[in-house]
Design a binder for these strands. Sequence first.
RNA 1: GGAGAGGUGGCCGAGCGGCCGAAGGCGCUUGCCUGCUAAGCAAGUGAGGACUUAUGUUCUCCGAGGGUUCGAAUCCCUCCCUCUCCGCCA
Length: 426
Amino acid sequence: MLDVKILRQNTEEIKKAMESRNEDPRQIDKIIALDEKRREFIQKADELKAKRNQLSKAVAKLKSAGKKEEAAKNIEESKDIGNKIKEFDDRLRETEEKQEALISQLPNIPLENVPVGKDEKSNKEIMKWGEPGTFQYEPKPHWEIGPELGMMDFERASKMSGARFVVLSDRIARLERALINFMLDYQTEKNGYSEINIPYLVKRDTMFATGQLPKFEEEAYKTTPDDMFLIPTAEVFLAGMHKDEILEESELPKKYCAYSACFRREAGSYGKDVRGMIRVHQFDKVELVKYTKPEDSFNELEKLTNDAESILRELDLPYRKILLCTGDMGFGAAKTYDLEVWLPSYKSYKEISSCSNDTDFQARRANIRYRNKENKLEYLHTLNGSGLAVGRTLVAILENYQNKDGTVTVPEVLRGYMGGAERIFG
RNA sequence: GGAGAGGUGGCCGAGCGGCCGAAGGCGCUUGCCUGCUAAGCAAGUGAGGACUUAUGUUCUCCGAGGGUUCGAAUCCCUCCCUCUCCGCCA
């Protein structure tokens, strides 16, 4: 959520920023026009309220002095004013609601060093790590490797649950679990995050706080009869956890990680990634979230991204790091790095983690503040990133570690989690 | 699902129509005291908005929304949330 004051003060800049995010800058004009009306109503109502307060005080005095008639006069006048106040308050609330509805649809403002661009073509590659392997044969995609091993079943998944689901079994099921444990252990033990085990169902306001609602309701799975939502990412819970709280400066930065299943309708992605388990309605992810002081969030994003990268390096998977342009970033993000892992089946890099600085955007929506050095309350900054998407990591391992005979080598760091297995074979 | 209790400032907690933005305590800030720390003493200390900025003026906020009233933290209604007990259940 953006601050109206900033819209008022830096109107032209914000309009440009919104344009760079493929939003209609005229929305800003609408909001500012509403804001002028809003302030006008506030002033009028406040004046009347001050008057009424005066009269009320006078009534109390007159009554205790036994001057009933004079009191009655004031009461009459006060009644009259009360009606006018109601009128202005109603109009005020109406404009406030309209304004709020528009503002809550606006995405975050990009940070200065974010490349401006309309879509992913303007994203900037920051670095590459590792070399994509060369194969003496045509490498298989995971949707062949898995089923041929008899451990990945798309037919039964769709029979039971529909399209875009997958069933894993035996060693591949174990590999999924190994990855979750490895990632959690690594992020907690090596990178200093506290592990949180979270609910997968959340209330409507929780979804609003992180920016999933109201704009992206189409994307979420809603449940009946209680209007609960299945979380599309653990971020929803982790970044909302301190809603309406005031944190002490000394507790910052707070670093959380959580494993969760994630649920997405993928409403707008017809025809995209239809094969395999790259894009499914339910997937596992280990998520990282930080709460930081505003002045630290910039650096903390670098660290958080590096924490996510460390998993890819430990697994020895070739990847690259991309700085997203203004038009390609998520709703709440002010700056985002994507990590993309090499996938032989795609013959390209594919997103496996997205790490964002959300600045005070979510903190404002969720009302999360901290007490700064001057003892003043201030919105803090939130950051989030995948560390990593487990399903896609599994895919990357199957494809990059595949052998000609159809077996898959288990990355060294995972062997301890796989009962010592070095290879997956049918 | 049934019954009950409750939601007040950073935290705890009193108040139950005007003297309440709210006692008291904790915490925090400053000063005094003090070999250091702790303790003690004194003073200060809620948030948000509008107008104006040199100071300042004013409004709103005691879970949310409505109502009664000249006036509501306090009375009435609706909703949300939390807790306890009973039932059911992994």
